[in-house]
Design a protein around this nucleic acid. Structure first.
Lengths: 189, 189
DNA sequence: CGCGTAATTGAAAAGTATCAACACTGGTGG
DNA sequence: CCACCAGTGTTGATACTTTTCAATTACGCG
């Protein structure tokens, strides 16, 4: 559920050691907003340490969490390929440290560094591969089953993430989440 | 809703004209199955003409349509990057003509042909960009609103696609789809 | 201590699925 | 030419799930 990409992290770390590559870094506090939907940015981020959430929010104030990203995951990269504004808002869940790469440097790396190119290509593919079954599951199964599936891949979920985030990730209300949690507890007695 | 990619189609058409590039082609009849979930394949497809549906099916026989792909859209490409079996089943909705590129040729093109590389990278980015709001909308809004949105981008939807496909795309039952259609009609009188 | 944010819960309303019966259509074989 | 069949579409009744709304409690922090 919180996704990582060690290969990319290792590689970008190496690149960052050489100042020639123009790779920057930034830090953010927990809850700080990093990207906002519909706005334009000129750099991409790769997470060095920490967790972010990517989410869409609509007119009614509802928000839907697309994914949680951890070490080695990149974000803000889609905007390089199509010159459109950001689709997602991104904000830090924990304290966060990132590498940053400007669009121009990023494009240059993609063109000149075949290994980097492959890593990014794979990272994009992984994002697609991840989304497909998630959307399908969430629509096809009852909440309880979806929650249990979550808990299986991320047992500490309840203690680490606020209920509201969990609900937004599952696409439900906190009321529904609470009901399910209660029923699960009741069944254990 | 039925997505296309003219840039990629134009480019692959040019490449295919030169036999050196080893680009093949295949045709399928409507309703024919092309890829099956969980199986491995060694080539990717780019649609020359026609429409396919990509879908996941589960143990209970339910199936969920991820997306409809039209001219210039590629599929079967994710498996090149991570050596995993297919996530989606793909089958032809209409009669279909495709270009085919073996994994090895595809990798070679990615490495040697920067323009092709960029086109594929953009195509992957577009797939991610497309999925995000769709998942969000479908979970956050009532069926009626989602249907109207669909009809807006694809007015002929009801005449072109079977109800079952529409329902599977929306993640609902045909019963619910029918109820909404009826209510919408009733409101017009 | 007191404030704001997050969490909890019940009751009612809205939305959706399930199930089962029936209608329509195009094609096939007698 | 008709009878039948399979696939697709339609509909009502009912049960279930989820949201909405509103009230209350718990918690962390300056």
């Amino acid at each position: 559920m919180i996704r990582t990409n060690q290969d990319l992290l290792t590689y970008i770390s190496k690149l960052a050691q050489n100042p020639v590559n123009l790779i920057g870094s930034e830090t953010f506090k927990a809850k700080q907003s990093i990207l906002e939907q519909h706005r334009r940015y000129n750099k991409i981020f790769i997470i060095q340490q920490g967790i972010v959430k990517c989410y869409l929010s609509d007119e009614n104030g509802k928000s839907f969490i697309q994914e949680f990203l951890g070490e080695g995951m990149e974000f803000g990269e889609l905007e390089v390929f199509d010159q459109k504004p950001a689709i997602c808002s991104v904000s830090a869940v924990t304290a966060l440290q990132t590498y940053t790469v400007s669009h121009s440097v990023f494009e240059n790396l993609l063109a000149k560094d075949l290994k980097f190119n492959k890593l990014i290509m794979s990272a994009l593919a992984a994002k697609i591969r991840y989304k497909a079954p998630r959307h399908s599951y969430q629509q096809s199964y009852p909440i309880e089953e979806n929650f249990l599936r979550l808990k299986q891949v991320f047992p500490e979920i309840i203690t680490v993430l606020p209920k509201q985030d969990i609900a937004n990730y599952m696409g439900i209300t906190t009321r529904s989440l609470n009901r399910v949690l209660r029923q699960l507890e009741a069944r254990l007695e």
